[in-house]
Write a protein that binds this DNA or RNA. Structure first.
Lengths: 146, 146
DNA sequence: GTCAGTGCAAACCCTTTGCAGAAAG
DNA sequence: CTTTCTGCAAAGGGTTTGCACTGAC
């Protein structure tokens, strides 16, 4: 342990602390999954997380990947992005922001909150409270337009 | 035929014309499905369409419901609304508008385009064109908040 | 030692597909 | 008559679950 680079150690510790701050016990598998998400800060489907995590020698099972991503989402560590009926994406960025979704490539890209803001929400239906606002701008690749 | 009420006849004819205008051959099953959508103008999941259509005596198979909804969506007759990873909703309203989605009840409610407008889109990624903008305001029922 | 987490395989559920029979023009 | 559509059942694919084993504290 003492011989690892500082950045590695600090990164692992940061992620462990992050999990604890969200009331999640940092097990080995959860750390591996969290590191994939938080070190690249990209959007991942469960399947992509599974692949990335299992590139190294330590493996995590499919059930654990799904259960862990669900747990992270419930505890506000990541945000679920629903843009495609065939799979859920997980976004390590939980701040207010929106998304481009390229329907040709399946690529999901952040829109900075300063670039697109919803100023005032319309009046909500009675007896309801807003939980979040998702804006998805669906894109096609130019060459792929029929 | 001559003995039906005018409203019935005109409604059936309207729906048939609507299908033809979108390049869709109006078969019996397609008409039944289209009437469910366009006479109530609500949002339906495929399963809800299936149930509504099959309340009468004439039945439509599950495969046909799915194939038909997909066909309607491809031909711009209805709009697919992706708000829930477990099912797709179909919206007979294809004009510019957005949605409230009550995550507790699964209810999907239109937001009139005058009540929420996205004025200027952020700069799109290079080589892409915008295909559509979806805004979803996720709601919880007040009493259901934990 | 106790309780929570993990892995495997099977179950689930929505959706799609292959193919034979039926309907539309 | 030819082509397209429909229905059934089976397959597909992402996700969840049941349960015995493992690991955390």
């Amino acid at each position: 342990m003492e011989n690892q680079t500082d950045s590695q150690v600090s990164s692992k510790q940061d992620v462990a602390r992050l999990l604890r701050e969200h009331g999640i016990l940092p097990t080995q598998q959860r750390l591996m999954i969290a590191r994939v998400l938080f070190e690249s800060r990209q959007h991942y489907s469960a399947d992509q997380v599974m692949t990335s995590v299992n590139e190294g020698r330590d493996r995590v099972s499919k059930a654990t990947v799904y259960n862990t991503l669900g747990l992270f989402a419930r505890n506000g560590l990541v945000r679920e992005v629903i843009v495609d009926p065939t799979r859920v994406f997980y976004d390590p960025n939980t701040s207010n922001h929106h998304h481009f979704y390229n329907v040709d490539t399946g690529e999901l890209i952040d829109i900075d909150s300063t670039d697109l803001q919803i100023n005032d929400l319309p009046k909500l239906p009675d007896g309801t409270v807003a939980e979040g606002v998702d804006v998805i701008i669906r894109l096609r690749s130019e060459e792929a337009v029929n």
